[in-house]
Design a protein around this nucleic acid. Sequence first.
DNA 1: TGCCAGGCGGCGT
DNA 2: ACGCCGCATGGC
Length: 279
Amino acid sequence: MAIIKFNGEYFSVKDTLNCGQVFRFTDAPGDKFIICTTDKCAVCYNKGDYAYIECNDGDEDYFFNYFDLERDYSQIVCYVQQKGIKILSDAVTKGKGVRILNQDKTEMLFSFIVSQNNNIPRIKKIIDSLCKKLGKKHSFNGQDYYAFPTVQALASVDEDFYKSIGLGYRAGYIKATADLINNGYSLEVLTALSTKDLKEELKKLHGVGPKVADCVTLFGFHRADSFPVDTWIEKLYYQDFSGTAKNRNHITNYFLQEFGDYSGYIQQYLFHYKRNGAD
DNA sequence: TGCCAGGCGGCGT
DNA sequence: ACGCCGCATGGC
């Protein structure tokens, strides 16, 4: 067992998990969280002035990168506060421990196809059953968990299977995308593209529109010049920014112009603030 | 119960 | 390019 100990000022495990970027985590006793990603697992928590990550020996580098620990978030928070926008300052004061995780591209793509027009508890449930039914069983800390399915496993079942676990009309999207990637389509080669081109490329996939593409560029490729607009952010834009743009694409463009390469971080602070309350 | 959820594809204009 | 509609399911 390895333990990563990291200054907790800009790393709140709880806040990082509760801003909608990740779905495979559960509560554990003692205000801890069990986090699964790809085929790995860790127990994470804050205690005193520090955040702790307990993982298997050999996974330290993976989780150091996963939690984006090489990045200086004080500089990001400073930029956000210097904008002088009240709701932003409030959001970042409340959520300065939010980090953007470096997650697996494939896992993000399938997870956010599942997420469309869906609610977070249900998204978590569906992804959990995908892993249980199609993922490889592992154990960590004496407890069983399941890896995110390989694309081979995802492609090995038919659309009816996906309907049977509650995916509804998204079943066809998952199946089509699984087949495509299993037949050789590579997400990794897309890394060479600019964020704009990357988004356009992702949107060609069945079931991937502007919002899902923005989530994949932000959470899977760590492109912070992305600003996903979902129903929460849309409400916030009209209520708290007195926005006048008429559709979600325009809202995205508004925020990108305002916040440039910091857009993705700001989106997370705002989403966290809006969904978890201002208290 | 009815509205809503980290929207998208298809279609008409 | 833009707007509208149907869509599966279940959380609350």
